[in-house]
Nucleic acid binder design. Sequence first.
DNA 1: ATAAAATGGTTAAGCGCTTTCCAAGGACCT
DNA 2: AGGTCCTTGGAAAGCGCTTAACCATTTTAT
Lengths: 337, 337
Amino acid sequence: MKPTIYDVAKEAKVSIATVSKVINKTGSISDPTRKKVNKVIQRLNYKPNVVASALTKKQTDSLALIIPDISNPFFSEISRFIEDKAHEMGLTLFICSTDYNEEKEKRYIELLQSKQADGFIIASGFQNIHLVEEFHQNNIPVTLLAQDNLTESFNVVSVDDYRGGFLAINHLISLGHQNIAVIAEKVHSSTLRLHAYRDLLGMHGMPVSEENVIRTTASIQNGEKAMLGLLQKEDRPTAVFAANDILAVGALKAARSLGLEVPKDISVIGFDNMILSTTTVPELTTVAQPIKDMADKIVDVLIRQIKMPHLATERTLFVPELIVRESTAQPPKHLKN
Amino acid sequence: MKPTIYDVAKEAKVSIATVSKVINKTGSISDPTRKKVNKVIQRLNYKPNVVASALTKKQTDSLALIIPDISNPFFSEISRFIEDKAHEMGLTLFICSTDYNEEKEKRYIELLQSKQADGFIIASGFQNIHLVEEFHQNNIPVTLLAQDNLTESFNVVSVDDYRGGFLAINHLISLGHQNIAVIAEKVHSSTLRLHAYRDLLGMHGMPVSEENVIRTTASIQNGEKAMLGLLQKEDRPTAVFAANDILAVGALKAARSLGLEVPKDISVIGFDNMILSTTTVPELTTVAQPIKDMADKIVDVLIRQIKMPHLATERTLFVPELIVRESTAQPPKHLKN
DNA sequence: ATAAAATGGTTAAGCGCTTTCCAAGGACCT
DNA sequence: AGGTCCTTGGAAAGCGCTTAACCATTTTAT
């Protein structure tokens, strides 16, 4: 049998209270007894049962991270940073992939409530925001990641999506593009990126043709399909802004399959700056999110909320950065006016 | 306050034992009382505290998955399948990234033992196998993933790495390549792939030059660096087998940076068939592991071991498959003999 | 009709910890 | 010498659940 605190206490000839206190460095314990207890702990290879301690402390020192899909590189990269930060703060992480599926969202959230997670991080792409609103009523700490919801007062940390969209479109416009299309996910953050597109085109007196904005879900195939549609149009765009790199990679593939050269014939810009964006040919111009900073911040915010539940909510927006690589250039000459 | 089983019992005017039994569908409870209890559970929005139940049952219904890095696409893809399967079996998963770092390995394993994980999955890339051996002594269920260790009798599920290497090299040889190099990770599975290389070259009477085998760790940069070295040699290989796709992508980049065309000037073959391998130009010829099957199998094996600790250990090797895409071709004419 | 078994539910112990409260003893002061 | 304070450690309650043991009915078998 695994040794328990009782075994340690008996061997060390002290009470279990004392053992508990030396483990947790609480109370006041003299040096000799502390050493004696520690020696026994070593000898028995005793490991405290944190399930038991969680039950008494009503606190599990674990967080839940709810994302659409860990196999999506954007989420796996950010998850990694969140894991590191959480671990650094002495917390463990449950990572759950919900596939943009409300059913799964519900199941996982109930499960993790049962598991007594101390707090929840809900990432972009979460469908049923009502589920999250229930957290508020039950006073469960939540913070939203890259999902800037304005209807309720959640703590959120995100990139400034509008600004990111602005950066991307502005880059294309300043290269001389007049006919710019967008392929965007059907999630809130992409909608914000899209707003920047519309606003900026408006500011430059360019018409926004609805044919030029495609809404889809993130996958290489969908990016490909969307791009194919765009390229078959009569008045084909000279540049496309894909609202994430996955979609952009699909767009690149589509262009290539039609024999079009990027960026000579058409420019493509992505968003997120995932590893993917350096493995393509040409390498992808994109907008980078400071995901490490975001990861650190979100666990800080969540911990703060756990410790001090009644603090004001806070929204943190990080500023994105344009990364110019090889996939954008001036539009083809004959198309310029 | 969150409702407990006592609240439900009081409201339903039954004992907590009865409530427990209807929740767990154990014992024999009449239909009327069951309905009555369930109604109260609904009304109070009661969620059983699984921390408490874990303490009494001495079982947490959770597994630990120890991998080097969740942000590596190979691991994030397979983690996703493992998560799905575990969840399907009613288990949750702790995923931990150890960065090939013995320090972190140790910390995480102790942590997860404290958390009372019911079983452990140790993935390829785990450095300190002694840590795992301790599991055996403590009777903690472990199974090894894609890490075919022969020194101890662990349960393992893996791809047949030797056969995979064989497939890759055989493909290159049958295309006519005589001068084949290898870039391999410094992990056991890659070593097996390397054995196939040596054996096959031997069988065909080709000399194995040690200059042609590079050992490194998995990253795009390392692949690039290794390839650069290979290409600067006098007697440059006409084909290279990268023991995983990450390395292969690096190799592709290196070739391109030197103005070499793949596969016209040099062939590259990868291993793993990650999404990455379809996003490159040219698309990567590679060896696919059936990771979904492997994922399903490994949780089955682990669960079996948890339930029946004294069953014989079992090693399951899945057979890999060659996926021919665009990055391999016959060697350049002037180099053939 | 009576014994045996099945049914439906309760009581109570215990899982391995944390933490509050208390007591004993020593140091220090008046 | 007696009182006060501080330090160190222990006793015991309780966290929310499961489950063995038990009891009282009711059903079934003989």
